[in-house]
């Protein structure tokens, strides 16, 4: 007997949650304990009175599992609202990355040229290194990081994505 693999879809979920101790552990732990995937997770306080946070989770699973994930999130007491941006329609996704490269001469010039094409900004520079700041969809960042590997990548920090629906309405 072999373990069966299932075809999965990528979904971006946003959760509005109470900003209290344990909320993140409850949500992240629920994903682990029920065997769901987390590709990325971001969380930050979004309210004036610091009572509410917004969590963006990128997950993966067959459609019925995605449906279960949403229902299981909704079942948690501190979770007020769950939106599946992928299902809901046109939306934007953005991620920020900091990318450090080391090099001199042609390599350094090439890194700078590529950064320019990708609209990455230099936020730190020494004679033999740069830190670039880049924002964009996850694909753009993946490609940029892959290119930087060729020209002296040292390390990368990524925020994970945040997303919003397009148009005037809130989700």
């Amino acid at each position: 007997m072999h373990i069966k693999q299932e075809l999965t879809e990528r979904h971006v979920l946003t959760l509005t949650v109470d900003n209290e101790a344990g909320t993140l552990a409850r949500i992240a732990g629920m994903f682990t304990s029920r065997g769901y995937n987390i590709d990325s997770l971001t969380v930050a306080d979004i309210s004036e009175d610091h009572t509410t946070s917004r969590i963006t989770i990128v997950t993966r699973g067959p459609p019925p599992v995605i449906d279960q994930i949403i229902a299981q999130c909704e079942r948690l007491i501190p979770v007020h609202k769950v939106t599946d941006l992928t299902e809901a329609g046109p939306h934007v996704e953005r991620e920020l990355a900091l990318v450090k490269v080391r090099g001199t001469g042609d390599q350094r010039v090439e890194a700078m040229r590529l950064a320019d094409i990708y609209r990455a900004r230099v936020i730190d520079a020494t004679v033999n290194s740069f830190i670039f700041e880049i924002t964009g969809g996850p694909d753009k960042i993946d490609t940029f990081v892959a290119l930087m590997r060729e020209v002296g990548l040292v390390e990368v920090g990524r925020t994970g994505i945040v997303g919003l629906m397009r148009g005037a309405e809130g989700s």
Binding site: A71, E74, R75
Partner: peptide
């Protein structure tokens, strides 16, 4: 009463 019980295993 629990939406997560619906469509969990059987559609």
């Amino acid at each position: 009463i629990d939406r997560s019980s619906i469509n969990k295993t059987v559609r």
